[in-house]
Amino acid sequence: MRGGEAATLEAVLQSVEDPEIPVVSVVELGIVRGLDAGQVTITPTYTGCPATAVIEANIREALDQAGFEDIQIKTVLSPAWSTDDITDAGRQKLKAYGIAPPPKGAKAASLCNKSVAECPHCGSINTREISRFGSTPCKALWQCNSCHEPFDRFKCH
């Protein structure tokens, strides 16, 4: 693949939104693992996440529309996706959208979801977990004790 094509391909993938959290792209979420040898490698967030099939279909559609019909999509499980794979830009966008991003380096401590979360609305760390699961498999429901707003928190994974 020539350099120009690779850049275009990357831009195409950057344009594919996550179906559940449309402010971040599949690249920023860390779902896209790599682009090489005529294929795009992707990895699921959760094994049962219903968005996985939609994401693959959306990537296929974006590639086809941009003229990359011959680029294959390959799904891999290993190494397992982690919230550490979310880019810094992705984290900023999640926060601006009202979702507390997961702390980085959470992988080692596994699902360290009992640690504090910063309220994406007012910045307070005086917050509490309401429910271990939220609106999607990847999020928990929290509430801020300072501004009283509820918010989603990306689970460390």
Binding site: Y46, T47, G48, F133
Partner: peptide, 21 residues
């Protein structure tokens, strides 16, 4: 409660994902 409903459904979803694999 709705929180428990969400938890149980999500646990089920994870397990059905494993089953698919």
């Amino acid at each position: 409660t709705i929180e428990v409903d969400l938890s149980l459904a999500n646990l089920g979803l994870d397990l059905i994902g494993q089953a698919m694999h």
